[in-house]
Design a protein around this nucleic acid. Structure first.
Length: 573
DNA sequence: GCCGTTTTCGGCCCGACTGTTTTCAGTCG
């Protein structure tokens, strides 16, 4: 039984207790025990005494120990006999929580979605005290919507929606400023909904404008402080708009950026000093409510170093910010982009145009890395064309003074593990990337053989999009990423964090492990157009989620350092 | 059920909104 399964059992126990109408604090105790386990860096086997972990006491500790010893929980088994398991599904229904589910079960014998629909249709639900006609209607609607859309949507899709919303918000005169909040601001890979915080003196007018201009499908909540709408997109994504005054903006933004668990940690901390935190500010022991002009100032008030949104997940970030500045990478640390394509293969722009756009972004250098010959769908370069391209890169590079364009290639690692060019060719390039674009369904063993061959080549400096995943669409090929990290370390090969919004590959979890192992990372956009260069921001956000420091990233090097890095060649570690 | 520089009892994060009520419980984030 692994950690995830143990946490899952604790959560299920909590849900059963909720349905039974148990003491709410007992319920959160089970959930908190699960969170404590998740936060702990050790694996289940590496923990000797669970009760020593804060949040786990005798009761939950016994449950965990029994689970590990026997694979079962007598607490859970008892609950299963008292409450049908099918009831657990009902919490997914909008507007239903443990308490209402418990009442529906005890008084109307509702056990699953089918019996809930029946109870609604026969008018029995509205007769229950606390329920009513409207509740019954909404429940019926919510049940029917239940499986119509995935619970969470990938960040690429949600960023697209957010961008289109922002285009509208900037044109509404009553809006002083606004910001993304919630999961998107924290750059989670997938999320349920979108959140915006808006400074305005006229929430009502602005609400009306937003409803009209976004052509919303439905308004599911409307008050003085907030509005919730459903967008007219394919999935019917829900968006929260929270309105605020100038003074409250930062605290409101902080609050709605979350995560909820992070906010809870901060409130516990404030409480130790007798202070109270809400979205309106910090209430001190005495005196007026405090607000702040930046989130950093707010953290500072709590005795913490600044914590960027991307790591506010309610794990150990508060503890770490207490000890020292986190020192995590920022977008401004990026000095170049090492992965881009031109019209020579499948890019949309000339080499010159791509280089100019990179320079305009303030970069000191970039590498041109078109596809290699075997990737025919992308008109990969034959040896002959690749060598001719070297001349073109040199001539484009000569037109810049404070910017260097390096020659490179994104070379295919072929299904049999061989590489698409000979070392004779590769040694003429400044920067060689290797990646897998074919035979995704091979065994893990064969995929690892391919990656090992690439890492062991003396000219391959970087493995691009190491897992080949496309978020929400494709899992990628089977990679033993731990083994790849060891290979990268051993051979002095860097691993990519591909910033493309559909990839974000490696993920935050894996770049964190790579950094811990001493492997260098490149945060690249793999741009095929100028527009795609903007995804660097998402790549850096993902790196921050992985607690990446600038010194672990090769494209944070200055122009001179990077030039030396190229010349020095691979340094096996 | 868990916890303690207010420590073995009495608390447990905080507020908006909805639908039900006629002062508030439940849900959500």
């Amino acid at each position: 039984m692994d950690k995830k399964q143990v946490i899952d059992v604790l959560d299920r126990i909590a849900l059963y207790l909720e349905i039974q109408g148990e003491n709410p604090f007992k319920i959160t105790a089970y959930r908190r025990a699960g969170q404590a386990l998740e936060t702990d860096e050790r694996s289940i086997g590496g923990i000797d005494d669970f009760s020593k972990i804060k949040g786990i006491g005798k009761g939950t500790g016994d449950v965990i120990r029994e689970l590990i010893a026997t694979g079962e929980s007598s607490v859970l088994n008892t609950l299963k006999q008292e409450v049908p398991a099918s009831l657990l599904e009902l919490v997914k229904i909008q507007g239903l929580g443990g308490k209402k589910i418990g009442r529906l079960y005890r008084e109307l014998n509702v056990t699953d979605t089918a019996s809930l629909i029946q109870a609604c249709q026969s008018g029995k639900v509205r007769a229950l005290p606390g329920f009513g006609e409207k509740t019954e209607e909404k429940l019926l609607e919510a049940v029917q919507k239940l499986n119509q859309r995935p619970a969470e949507l990938p960040i690429a899709y949600m960023v697209g929606l957010a961008e289109s919303i922002e285009k509208v918000l900037v044109t509404i005169p009553g809006i002083v400023r606004f910001s993304r909040a919630g999961s998107l601001r924290r750059a989670r890979e997938s999320m349920k909904d979108l959140d915006f915080v808006i400074e305005t003196a006229d929430p009502e007018g602005v609400s009306g404008q937003i409803r009209e201009r976004l052509n919303v499908r439905e308004v599911t909540g409307q008050g003085e402080a907030k509005m919730t709408v459903v967008l007219p997109d394919t999935y019917g994504v829900s968006v929260d708009f929270r309105f605020t005054s100038a003074a409250d903006f930062i605290m409101m933004l902080h609050h709605f950026t979350g995560s909820r668990d992070h906010n809870i940690l901060l409130r516990h901390l404030a409480k130790e000093h007798g202070e109270k935190i809400s979205e309106y500010g910090v209430t001190p022991v005495q005196g007026p409510v405090l607000t702040f002009s930046s989130e950093a100032a707010f953290y500072h008030h709590l005795g913490l170093n600044d914590i960027p949104p991307e790591v506010r997940e309610g794990t150990d970030e508060v503890e770490r910010a207490m000890e020292a500045p986190l020192g995590l990478i920022r977008l401004s640390d990026i000095k170049g982009d090492l992965h881009m394509h031109s019209t020579w293969s499948d890019g949309n722009e000339t080499i010159q145009a791509m280089a100019e756009a990179m320079e305009a972004r303030g970069y000191a250098y970039a590498c041109l890395t078109d596809h290699s010959k075997s990737l025919r769908v992308a008109t990969g370069l034959s040896e002959d064309r690749l060598l001719r391209q070297l001349d073109e890169v040199a001539s484009v590079n000569a037109r810049f003074t404070d910017f260097t364009l390096y020659s490179g290639v994104e070379m295919d690692i072929l299904p049999d593990g061989s590489l698409d060019y000979s070392d004779e060719i590769l040694k003429q390039l400044d920067f060689v990337i290797a990646s897998i674009h074919s035979s995704f369904s091979q065994s893990k063993k064969q995929i690892m053989k391919r990656l090992a061959n690439a890492c062991r080549n003396p000219f391959v400096r970087l493995i691009a999009h190491p897992t080949g995943r496309l978020l929400g669409r494709r899992r990628g090929y089977p990679v033993d990423v731990d083994a790849l990290i060891r290979l990268a370390k051993e051979t002095g090969t860097a691993l990519e964090l591909n910033s493309n919004r559909n990839r974000l590959d490696l993920s935050a979890k894996w770049v964190r492990k790579a950094q811990q192992a001493g492997v260098k990372i490149a945060i690249d956009t793999d741009s095929h157009s100028k527009k795609m260069m903007e995804d660097m921001a998402l790549g850096v956000q993902t790196a921050v989620r992985g607690w990446i420091r600038p010194e672990s990233v090769i494209n944070t090097m200055s122009a001179a350092q990077f030039s030396d890095f190229i010349k020095a060649g691979k340094q096996p570690g």
